[in-house]
């Protein structure tokens, strides 16, 4: 299952004096099984892009194709999009609405006309997979959960739909470090099980640790589309964009500036540790 974004532009408040371009001529393809990270400053158009892929907004120009079919064509079955592409918007916890966690998570599957046993099985699995205990939370009101638990309950509701492509808009903002780590491990597991992941985040450390490809948006334009290795290699461009680099990359660059010879292409933690052990190991024992 692939998504093609083809020459897509979008303007807010089109036809009014407040009209402003949110996206300009964006093109890229999401291939099955990819893990794509989207980076960019607040207001660069990341969330607009996701809403376009979700079909919540309609592009001013260009097309969005799901398996070759234009999602904005009249004869396109929107249910198909909803089933195959799961979208976790910002602050998904604000969308919890049912009396119990079980009812909330099962809302989607119930609309699919599945047998009750299948609905329950999916619900249980989705709740467990986000790290909540099904028996403990199933009868609780979602409103009694903590912030992080609410977030996970909301995401369970998307997962219960068993989408093939999962799109996440800032899913880890506001989560504590351990929850964030668990959550990313969980997303990685979904990816390894074959789901395609598209994730928007300001957390360059997490994005660079997990993504095989990064898209960088700036003022509505897709200006970089490459592997993290290639993107981090062009430091001048990154600092011009004021996006910063991952902490391991920052450490490597700072050490290299101080005359310590380390490979310049390191941007993840484990390779950094290995390189430091190779460089400093054995000399102070």
């Amino acid at each position: 299952m692939s998504i093609v974004v083809e020459n897509v532009s979008y303007r807010y408040a089109a036809g009014t004096p407040l009209e402003s371009a949110a996206l300009k001529q964006i093109s890229f393809t999401i291939q099955p099984g990819e893990f794509i990270g989207i980076l960019g400053h607040t207001g660069c158009g990341k969330s607009t892009l996701i809403q376009l892929i979700a079909g919540v907004l309609t592009p001013a120009t260009g097309r969005i194709l799901l398996d070759g079919k234009d999602i904005n064509q009249r004869d396109f079955k929107r249910e198909y999009l909803r089933k195959k592409v799961g979208i976790v918007f910002q602050f998904p916890e604000q969308q919890l609405f049912e009396m119990t966690v079980e009812r909330d998570v099962s809302f989607g599957p119930r609309q699919l006309g599945l047998p009750p046993s299948e609905v329950q099985a999916r619900t249980r699995q989705a709740i467990q997979s986000v790290g909540l205990d099904y028996e403990t939370v199933r009868d609780l009101s979602p409103l009694t959960l903590s912030g992080g638990e609410k977030r996970r309950a909301a995401i369970a509701g998307i997962l219960a739909m068993e989408p093939e492509i999962l799109i996440l808009d800032e899913p880890i903002a506001g989560l504590d470090p351990v929850t964030r780590k668990d959550f990313m491990a969980f997303i990685r597991r979904l990816h390894q099980e074959g789901k395609t992941i598209l994730m928007v985040s300001h957390d360059i450390d997490e994005l660079s640790a997990f993504s095989s490809r990064l898209l960088v948006l700036d003022h509505g334009e897709l200006i970089l589309d490459n592997t993290p290795e290639k993107i981090f290699a062009d430091k001048a461009r990154l600092s011009e964009l004021r996006l910063g680099v991952s902490q391991p990359k920052e450490i490597v660059d700072s050490l290299r500036e101080k005359g310590i010879d380390l490979p310049s292409d390191i941007f993840r933690y484990e390779p950094l540790l290995t390189a430091l052990i190779n460089r400093f190991g054995g000399q102070n024992e």
Binding site: Q247, E250, I251, S254, L255, K258, I260, Y269, L272, L273, L276, I277, F280, G281, G282, Q283, N284, E285
Partner: peptide, 29 residues
């Protein structure tokens, strides 16, 4: 990183809290 380096037999004089402190200590090594 300080802990992982220590476990690998590389000892920094003090536990650094910031990237700046860390790189200073590594330079001293």
């Amino acid at each position: 990183l300080y802990e992982d380096l220590r476990n690998a037999g590389i000892h920094l004089a003090e536990c650094p809290l910031t990237i700046h402190e860390l790189t200073e200590q590594l330079c001293r090594l």
